[in-house]
Simulated assay, not measured.
Amino acid sequence: MQTQDKNLPVDIGIEEESRKEIADGLSRVLADTYSLYLKTHYFHWNVTGPQFNSLHLMFEQQYTELAIAVDDIAERIRALGVFAPGSYSAFAELSSIPETSEVPSAEEMVRLLVEGNEAVARTARSVFPATERGKDESTADLLTGRLRVHEKTAWMLRSILNAQ
Results as ranks from 00 to 15, higher is better:
Leu66Lys: 08
Glu102Phe: 07
Ala74Asn: 02
Leu147Ala: 03
Ala67Trp: 10
Glu137Ser: 08
Pro50His: 11
Ala130Cys: 11
Arg76Ser: 01
Leu94Tyr: 03
Glu65His: 08
Met58Asp: 05
Leu147Trp: 05
Ile160Gly: 08
His150Ser: 02
Glu93Val: 09
Val47Arg: 09
Arg76Asn: 01
Met1Trp: 07
Thr144Met: 07
Ala84Gln: 01
Leu38Arg: 12
Ala130Trp: 04
Glu102Cys: 15
Ile14Leu: 03
Pro85Cys: 02
Ala130Val: 12
Leu147Gln: 05
Thr144Gln: 09
Ala67Gly: 13
Ser138Val: 14
Val10Gly: 02
Ala154Pro: 07
Gln51Lys: 14
Thr139Glu: 00
Ser18Ala: 07
Ile77Asp: 09
Leu26Met: 03
Leu142Lys: 03
Arg19Ala: 02
Ser27Pro: 11
Phe83Gly: 14
His44Cys: 05
Pro85His: 01
Phe83Cys: 11
Asp11Thr: 13
Val114Ala: 03
Arg78Tyr: 13
Leu112Met: 13
Lys135Glu: 15
Asp32Gly: 06
Ala163Glu: 13
Met58Leu: 15
Ala79Gln: 09
Val29Thr: 15
Val120Ile: 12
Ile12Gln: 06
Ser54Val: 15
Ala163Gln: 11
Leu66Ile: 09
Leu57Gln: 07
His41Cys: 04
Met156Ile: 00
Leu142Tyr: 06
Pro98Ile: 00
Asp136Thr: 06
